[in-house]
Every structure is written in C-alpha cells, then in structure tokens.
Nucleic acid binder design. Structure first.
Lengths: 190, 190
DNA sequence: GTCTATACCCTGATAGAC
DNA sequence: GTCTATCAGGGTATAGAC
C-alpha cells in the first residue's frame, strides 16, 4: 500500500481552483481576473493551473456549470413562489455569490463573451420555472394584459435589479422585503 | 481673418471621442475596451486621444457625466410615474445606451472601479425621484409593509433587470409591457 | 502534477519631434 | 494637435524539464 500522497487529490484541486476562480471573477470581472491571480490564491503558478483547465474560457464555463448544478438543483425545485423571498434572504448572507452573478451576467452581454450562452439559457429556464409557479399559485391575480410569463420576467428582474442596488448601497437595501412586497402586489385582487 | 481650420474643433473632437468611448465600453466593458481601439474609431492614435483625456479613468468619468447630464436632464423631470414606461419604450430604440448602462453599472461593483461612486450616487438619486413620483401618484395603493421607497427600488429594479433579460434574449422581452404591468399592480386596491 | 522558461501580443502612459 | 518612439508591465498560452 502506497504512502499517502504528498499532493492534493486532483478532483479536490480542481474544486479549489473553481472556487478561487468564482471569487476572483466576482471581484474583478472575467477580463479583470488573471489566471496568475487565481492560481496564486490556491498556491499554484499560472502554468500549474493551466494543467487542470486548458484555457481561461474553459475555466469560466466550468465555474458556471458547477455553480448552476449546485445552486439551481438545491434551491429551485422546492416550494412555490414563496421560495423566492427565501432565496433572496439566503443571498443576503452570500455577497460573493450575488456579486459573481451580477458581474458575470452583465459581463456576458459584451462581444464574444464565453458566458453568453450560459446566461441566455439560464434566464429562459428561469422564466419558465417561475411562470409555472405563478400559474400554480392560488393567490395570484394578474392584471389585464399581464401573462404569467410577464409576471415571471418581472419577478426575476426585481431580484436581479435589487441585487445591483444592494451591492452598490453596501447592503442598505432590504431585498427580501421588497421581493415580499412584489409577491403581495401579485396576490391582491383589484 | 484666418483661414478655416484644417483640423476638427477641439470640443467637437472631444464629443466624438466620448461617443466612441461609450460605444466601446458598452461593447466590451471598461477593462475590455482599450484606448487604442477607441482612438481608432475616431481616426486617432492612442496617444492622440490621450491629448484630450489624460487617463483612461478620466475618460470613463467624463463619458458618464456627459450622459447623465443629457439623459437625466431631459427624461426625468417631466411627468409622474407614467414617464417610466415611456422611457423604457424609448430605450427599446437605443440598444447601445441600454447595454452601456447595464454593463458599466455591474462592472462598477468590482474592485476599485472608477465608476463606483457615480453609480452609487445615481441610484440614490433615482430612488428618491421615483419615490416622490410614487407618493404623488393618486392611483397608487401600497400593500402593507411596503414604503414608497420600497416601491421605487422595486420599479427601478424591474427596469434594470428587464434590460438584462432583453439584451440576452436578443430583444425578445416586452420591457414596456412588463413595466406597465408593474405600474398596474401598484395602482390596484386590495 | 507542477515547475521554469519563453513566445508573443496588448496594455496604459510618457517624452519629445513636427 | 497629432504623431513616432519607447517604456515598463501585464496578459494567455506552449514546450519541455523534473
């Protein structure tokens, strides 16, 4: 039986790198975060990092894929519309995560951005999921001319837009309260 | 009397540069847009550009100041809450402008970003202005626990969040309709 | 699996000629 | 007012030793 490895297990290393990359993309955006900086944060050289992820673009894609898998899988399937304020409340405890999505999603609309497809698909799926919640909620009464899809787009927009204001205000905005308010608006009848 | 100048007037040149800079910041973000690229777009070298704006940071600040002056001055003072869907409708005709604000505002939450203060201040002023509109609107009935400031934060968030979805969907989202819907929600009584 | 060395390009900024 | 020349620094990525 061989001695315990001197070095970290490859899968663990990969996870460490993905973690550090997400942090740095959040702090400085995709273009502003260099491979060397990410590598340094896990005690590697830039070239050592490239052993695990052949290109920077590849690294970003894998970061997003991992996060999507973990987050979306755990948070979204449970419950109806009231899961939304719950998620928002959780997010107030995870500034880094909020910032990474805010920065990277806006980043992704720029030219030839590697995360473009990821976010386009993500929002399509998100709108569909939230529209279903809206339709199934017994309390919701939509005003004339507003479809369930419109309401879904609105709710997602509220959450995203609040995150930006929250980040810029240094946490001074009551995200959860406002999202609860938005739900209350949808649930009262004329 | 001297002959007409061979070169462009300095103020006109400055405006040209600011225009090109805004475009390129929108297309590639602040860090992704190089001085050389901006200069090229107005037929200058990078060094020629630096004659007008001593640093890149300075250029960004002036771009934002100019835009803020023009846009905010013209659009915001008129009318009450119904100015909001009107602005959104106008924005569907100005993709570049929408993209520049979406990209730069999110960009600005990253480390040591020169536009950070600009956007922090902008949102504070915006919330205050919209909160006043909410208070003065005769039709608005707020649900329990939602202040005029909360409603303002929500409306601004809806507009910002929709812009991101709109940009990512290739213009497929009906921004104006959803914002009208949000106003309708605020204006119906329980 | 991680390193050193290196190729090659782009960055913002300065100095000084014209 | 705009250029050429140049600087010091950083970027991603490859080749190959250990």
């Amino acid at each position: 039986m061989p001695r315990a490895r001197r070095t970290t297990r490859p899968e663990a290393r990969r996870e460490e790198i993905l973690e550090a990359a997400l942090e740095l993309f959040a702090e400085r955006g995709y273009r502003g975060a260099s491979l060397a900086l990410i590598a340094e944060r896990v005690g590697l050289t830039q070239q050592g990092l490239l052993h695990y992820f052949p290109t920077k673009e590849r690294l970003l894609v894998e970061v997003l894929a991992l996060r999507d898998e973990r987050d979306t899988a755990h948070l979204w399937p449970h419950g109806g519309l009231d899961a939304l304020p719950a998620i928002v409340e959780l997010n107030t405890q995870r500034r880094g995560m909020v910032q990474s999505y805010t920065v990277l999603s806006a980043d992704s609309v720029t030219e030839d951005h590697p995360a473009r497809d990821f976010f386009t698909g993500r929002y399509e799926r998100l709108r569909e999921a939230v529209a279903a919640m809206v339709r199934e909620d017994p309390g919701v009464v939509l005003p004339e001319g507003m479809s369930a899809e419109d309401a879904a787009a609105m709710l997602i927009a509220v959450m995203d837009g609040l995150q930006l204001q929250w980040l810029l205000s240094g946490g001074d905005i009551d995200m959860t309260g406002v999202v609860r308010g938005a739900l209350a608006l949808l649930r009262r009848s004329p």
